[in-house]
């Protein structure tokens, strides 16, 4: 179960080298995303798609909003 983080938590993790993963569909990612984020849509999130992530660094996942 991932830990919930707020904006300050995200900033702290990014300072420590965290990776950002947007789980929205590709079109929404293409339109606008956080700097440096990679797109792994929720529907295609599996071991294979997650292999692109660095296991040694923290991972922050996000979507559109809290709803």
């Amino acid at each position: 179960m991932p830990d919930s983080v707020d904006l300050n938590g995200v900033k702290r993790l990014l300072q420590n080298g965290a990776q950002l993963v947007e789980v929205l569909p590709p079109a929404e990612f293409a339109e606008e995303h956080l700097p440096g984020a990679v797109n792994i849509p929720l529907k295609s999130l599996d071991v294979s798609s997650a292999a692109q992530l660095d296991r040694r660094r923290p991972v922050i996942v996000y979507c559109y909003d809290a709803l």
């Binding site: 991932p2 830990d3 919930s4 983080v5 707020d6 904006l7 938590g9 995200v10 993790l13 965290a18 947007e22 606008e32 995303h33 956080l34 700097p35 440096g36 984020a37 923290p58 991972v59 922050i60 996942v61 996000y62 979507c63 559109y64 909003d65 809290a66």
Partner: peptide
């Protein structure tokens, strides 16, 4: 793993950079 619950809407609403 961490879940940024408020998502990108929150990030952009704080005037932070975007791509």
């Amino acid at each position: 793993m961490a879940d940024y619950v408020n998502g990108k809407t929150d990030w952009f609403a704080h005037g932070l950079p975007r791509e």
